[in-house]
Simulated scan of single mutants.
Amino acid sequence: MERIMQLEFHLDARAVPRTERPGGRTARTGAAVLEAARTEFAESGYAGTTVERIALRAGVAKTTVYRRWGGLEGIVVDLLDALGTVEVPAPDTGDVGTDLRELAREIFVLYKDPVLCAMIEVMATAAVHTASARESLTAFFANRARSTATVVERAVERGQFPAGTDPAEVIRLLTAPFYYRLFLTGEPIDRSVADRAAATAVAAARAEVLVTGAAAAVV
Rank of each mutant, 00 (worst) to 15 (best):
147 S>M: 15
146 R>E: 10
181 R>W: 07
160 Q>K: 10
172 R>M: 05
144 R>F: 14
171 I>W: 04
153 E>M: 07
135 E>Y: 11
141 F>M: 10
135 E>K: 11
145 A>S: 11
153 E>Y: 00
166 D>W: 04
164 G>W: 07
143 N>S: 13
151 V>K: 12
184 L>A: 12
152 V>D: 01
163 A>V: 15
147 S>N: 14
173 L>W: 01
149 A>M: 03
172 R>F: 09
166 D>K: 05
155 A>D: 09
187 E>D: 15
138 T>N: 09
184 L>I: 12
146 R>V: 00
150 T>G: 15
160 Q>P: 04
160 Q>A: 11
169 E>T: 13
152 V>E: 03
145 A>D: 12
158 R>A: 15
178 F>D: 02
139 A>D: 13
154 R>Q: 06
178 F>Q: 05
155 A>L: 11
147 S>H: 14
150 T>V: 15
168 A>L: 09
152 V>L: 04
170 V>G: 03
136 S>H: 09
177 P>Y: 06
178 F>I: 05
165 T>E: 03
181 R>A: 03
135 E>V: 08
151 V>W: 12
150 T>E: 14
186 G>W: 11
138 T>D: 10
165 T>P: 04
137 L>W: 10
186 G>P: 07
134 R>D: 07
155 A>E: 11
159 G>Y: 12
146 R>Q: 05
161 F>Y: 15
157 E>V: 13
154 R>C: 03
149 A>T: 04
164 G>E: 07
154 R>L: 06
157 E>W: 02
178 F>G: 02
163 A>M: 12
138 T>P: 00
175 T>M: 15
142 A>R: 09
147 S>Y: 08
179 Y>K: 02
151 V>D: 08
162 P>Y: 10
175 T>K: 15
134 R>T: 08
152 V>I: 13
148 T>A: 14
175 T>N: 13
172 R>P: 00
160 Q>V: 07
156 V>S: 01
147 S>W: 12
172 R>C: 02
153 E>K: 14
134 R>Q: 11
134 R>A: 15
152 V>Y: 03
185 T>I: 05
182 L>V: 01
